[in-house]
Structure formats: structure tokens, C-alpha cells
Design a protein around this nucleic acid. Sequence first.
DNA 1: GGCTGAAGTATACATGCGTAGACATATTTC
DNA 2: GAAATATGTCTACGCATGTATACTTCAGCC
Lengths: 198, 198
Amino acid sequence: MKTPSKTAAPPRRRDAEATREAILVSARKAFAASGYDGAGLREIAAGAGVTAMMVNRYFGSKEHLFAEVVEQTMTQGSLIAGGIMDHPRPGHALAEALVKMTRADVTPVDGFLITLHSASSAAAADIGREKIDAHHLKTVTRALHGKRQAERAALILAVISGFQVMRQMIALPALANADEDVLVRLLAGVFDRLIDPA
Amino acid sequence: MKTPSKTAAPPRRRDAEATREAILVSARKAFAASGYDGAGLREIAAGAGVTAMMVNRYFGSKEHLFAEVVEQTMTQGSLIAGGIMDHPRPGHALAEALVKMTRADVTPVDGFLITLHSASSAAAADIGREKIDAHHLKTVTRALHGKRQAERAALILAVISGFQVMRQMIALPALANADEDVLVRLLAGVFDRLIDPA
DNA sequence: GGCTGAAGTATACATGCGTAGACATATTTC
DNA sequence: GAAATATGTCTACGCATGTATACTTCAGCC
């Protein structure tokens, strides 16, 4: 018999698609936790149970991998991606979802936050800007009425990002430990003001 | 005669205080531009006209240098540091100053943005949280009246940081190229809502 | 049932980082 | 003027990074 013990970690049969997916998952976690520069290829590869070279074999380069991770996390599983702007009270719904997703014990894997966490790198900032512009900004703008839609949508995204940064990245106690209902109420007021500037 | 030409760059007489200040200035620029991890000690030192070792000689380590830079930029020359919250229309004043200081051609040296740009590093995030908590949050909270002052102050900081991130770091076109008056009006509305939640 | 191409590994290289210790030079003080 | 000290430089170490080349091993097909 080969490798009699240690059956706890079956090395996974060779499967290109599964490996590719495993790398993407590991990369998403690593980028969210450490940012573009902070996450190393070896660390990402280890999380997927492969060697660092596999990452470049599948994705060409770290930069391409990052672009694909951001693309994927912005089109699925993101705060904005769902039809949250179609809610009857979009401001309140947005505030509630935002507060929930930024809890301290929640692993932050939002595409938005990954971009913010990586924005110190010029290459990562470029990718993030492009993806935000292509996905989130369009989604939010479409749900607005009246004048200055582009600016209002961008400000909504700015408020979301600022809240995420302060509550999760910086972990400012006043936000991280605050009563969630209070935060939802205050945030909803801000969002309402930008959604319906009456 | 020694080094007859090349008098263009006088090596500056040995002066501990001036050198220390030059390092701080260079470090502030470098951290603002590249974040904590992205800025190298050799780059910072070169900007101050000295060797990398001088940095550690004066500040002990990169981490200590960063802490001192953040401390300095938060207590002087920052958006919040001035008495802007004592303005008769603090929301509008805040919005106007924020929009002006985040212009594309302005070198971002705000203490806030330095922290945001460096927040992917755990050590830098710790330092930033402590400084924000000690300086900015207190300043803003003191200017508020009514209930939930801590949460409202934190949200004001969150909006400021989100705007800075989106307009300067990510350089989202919808914000970077927007008409400034429009931005000021919209932002002032948001700030007013948090300053005076009537 | 052996072979062929895909899937994965091993090793290495060039570079940059923060930091350390030994050394050189200018400034100040007696 | 000379000794003492503060100021600054040089060289180097250990480590980590992203990536390239050469090699090995498994999976599926005839």
C-alpha cells in the first residue's frame, strides 16, 4: 500500500478545472487578507495545494490572476452584484447588507474590499478602477433617477468603500463595535440622500 | 581643488535636525505615493539626500518612522486638524476642503490617505487606527451635538476616507473628472445629514 | 498495455527589501 | 591646533519575491 496513513489530505486527482478553481479561491482569500503586494504566489499556491509555478501556468502572471479574481468577485457574491438596488427601500437595504457583511468575524472577500486593500499597488489600482467602472458603477447608476446620476452613484460607492475601510480594514472601534441598528439607520439616511436628492 | 564642478547639489552641512526633517518630508511623500510596503527605505533616504542607514539611525526602524510620519501629518496640515468643524456651515466647509484637497494634480500628503494607502500592512493599519482614534475622531466628535456622536463622527470620517480613496487612490473617473461644485453640493448634503440629524 | 500529452514539481536566477556592523569624515570643544 | 564625538557612508547578510527552464509523474486513448 502507498502512503498508508495521512489519508486525511488526498492529493486530489489531476484535474485542471478543479485546480484552477482552487487557485482562484485561495487567491481571493489571500488578496482580501493581505492585498495585492502582500499576498505571495507561494502562499496562494500552498492554499490551493500546488506549487507556485502552477499559478503562472494557469493564469500567466500574478497580475492576470488578480484581474480574474477581481472580475469574479465583482460579478458574483458582491454587495452590489445582487439586485439590491431594486429593493423598495434601496437605501435601507443597502445599509443593512453593508453592515452585515462588514462584521468583524466575517472574512472579507468582497471584490470591492480586495481592490481597496490592494490600491497601494499601481497595477492593482488600475485593474480595480476598470472593474468598478465596468460593473458596480453601471449597476448603481441604472437604479438612480434625476440629475447628476454619475456623480451620485460614484458617491454611493465612495460611502460604501469608506465604511468598509473604516469598519473592516482599519477596524475603527467606533464602527467595529457599534450597535448595528444605529449604523443601519445612519447609513440608510446617507444613502437615501444620494439615491433620492429631493 | 576638490570636486570642482557639480556644485549644483551642495551636500548640506551636517545638521541632525535638518536631516531628520528632510527624512520625514521624503518619507511622507513616499508613504503617500506608495503606501507602507511600497515605499522603500533606500527611496526615502535618497529623497532626503542620505543613505538608507540614516533612516534607521534616526528613527530606529521603518515602523517607527511610519508612526512618526502619521502622527505628524494628522496633527498638522490635515483636513480635520484645522478648526474646520467650527465653521458656521461645517458640512459645506468640509466638503469644499475635501474636494479641493483631492484634486488630481495635488500630491496627496494627507495623514488620512497615507493610512488608507498603507492599510494593507497589518502593522501600518494598527498605527493608523490608533492615530485616527486619538486625533481625528476626537476632533470631529467634539463638534457634534445630540445622540450617537461617536457613530456619527466615525461615519463622517468614513465618508471622507471613501471619497479620498475613490477620487485619488482609485481615481474613479466619475469623481476625478466631475464638476467640483456638484461634488461639493452633494457631499455637503451628506455631511449635514450626519452633523445635524434633525 | 504501452505511449503521448497534460499536470505538476524542482531548481535556480535576478532583484529588492530591512537591517546590522565596521568604517570614514566633518563639527565641535577644550 | 588636537582630541572627541556626532554625523554619515560602505559593504554585506539573510530573506522573500515573481518568474523561467528543465524535469518528473500521472491520466486517458488506441
